[in-house]
Design a protein around this nucleic acid. Structure first.
Lengths: 218, 218
DNA sequence: AAAAAAGTTTAGACATGTCTAAAAATTTAG
DNA sequence: CTAAATTTTTAGACATGTCTAAACTTTTTT
């Protein structure tokens, strides 16, 4: 039986490895989970024993097929629950993360299947992030992060890649949500910050914000 | 912060004290939770320290106001989730207990409020058991257990007081569900078993089954 | 290529919640 | 009203997951 803590480690490892290829470092995991490097070391040994990760001391870690499958399943559950919370319980998209972090650990395959059906098998969650299918496939999109767009390009916000309340609240304040049309006006080379046009309003946002906005160009 | 294990102890104490007035014994709790009397003793001390129970060594335990409020809230969550699982996800009434036992521990007042609203503030769960309100009040019914009815009486099944798959599966097999009309034909004094009529079929059931069926007489 | 810095692991400790075995208190029976 | 049976508690142990401090690798700098 896989424990709650183990699921969180696997999820963290998957999430890090998606944003940066290759082996995942102890420190990166510690940062993601909010724990000490020492605790991570301890846990990696246990996950190794359970054949959920491949791990060489000092050399980083990667998920086994089995580990990847568990991690993907946790993300599937997280995103399905977020969809339910926003679509059916009228939560705001910034409020759901903490609750979904709990719900994602409920153990019942039947429950996930039925929830998926109840929601009409959604492909994307309320943040535009892809929901893995039952067999672990992750829907793809042809989107690129806003900070990679070239000046003068128009596009539509298809998703965000950060699920934290302060970030999402800021987007709401900027009048940005899924579906919003954005034009990239200017990139400042000094700090990679960018000017954008939303509707008829000009805004200036940092690279840190821009990189978490997924855009589909028109 | 109250832990999952603590919530389960409080729930068990409440549940026992509802079926048998006065102080609750260590052994009874151990039986309900499926743990050892030693573990119960340990936990009662911790709950006492947190002012959740009143406890005198060897003399049994009872809930404080605070403990009762937590326990009632857990039961409220359990029954709301069971309602969701049956009404919206089409689970069978015998399948929901295990899943609801996990869902009842999700921590988010907002979630419970919104779930309650989503379900249209139900007063009873799919087993006919009353769902405590947000402020801890428990809806009442004028029902009596089937085994207390007198011979020849007609009535309707309003609820069951046991949420275990084997029991519920057996009821389904007997064609008994919430709303079923039942006539008590005969009580056997030897073993308190009873003969009943459901539709046009005669059945014979044990006292153990009959006492968990709540009847409203016509 | 040695020294310094950064990253990682080990050692030892602690909190939670569980267990078995043994001791103590209470209840029941003769 | 003792003695036996039952119930409950304590003692000591273990598993999980966490921590800090110290030791050990690896990487970077000079």
């Amino acid at each position: 039986m896989i424990t709650l803590a183990e699921e969180n480690y696997l999820k963290a490892i998957l999430s890090i490895s998606l944003n940066s290829d290759g082996k995942v470092s102890t420190n990166a995991i510690a940062g993601e989970i909010g724990t000490s490097a020492a605790s991570v070391s301890d846990m990696l040994k246990k996950l190794q024993d359970k054949k959920l990760v491949k791990y060489k001391k000092y050399k980083g870690v990667s998920l086994t097929k089995k580990g990847n499958s568990f991690a993907t399943s946790v993300i599937r559950k997280h995103r399905l629950w977020e969809t339910f919370l926003v679509n059916n319980l009228n939560f705001d998209w910034g409020e759901v993360h903490y609750v979904a972090e709990q719900l994602e650990h409920i153990k019942s395959e039947e429950l996930v299947d039925r929830l998926d059906a109840f929601l009409d098998c959604p492909k994307f969650d309320p943040h535009g992030e892809p929901i893995p299918t039952k067999d672990g496939k992750i829907p793809t999109t042809n989107t690129i992060p806003l900070n990679k767009l070239s000046e003068g390009t128009n596009g539509k916000v298809m998703g965000v890649t950060l699920d934290e309340k302060p970030f999402l609240d800021y987007l709401t304040k900027l009048n940005i949500s899924i579906g919003t049309e954005i034009k990239l006006l200017e990139k400042i080379s000094f700090d990679q910050s960018i000017s954008i046009k939303i509707g008829n309003t000009k805004q200036h946002i940092s690279n840190d914000v821009a990189k978490h906005l997924l855009i589909k160009t028109n």
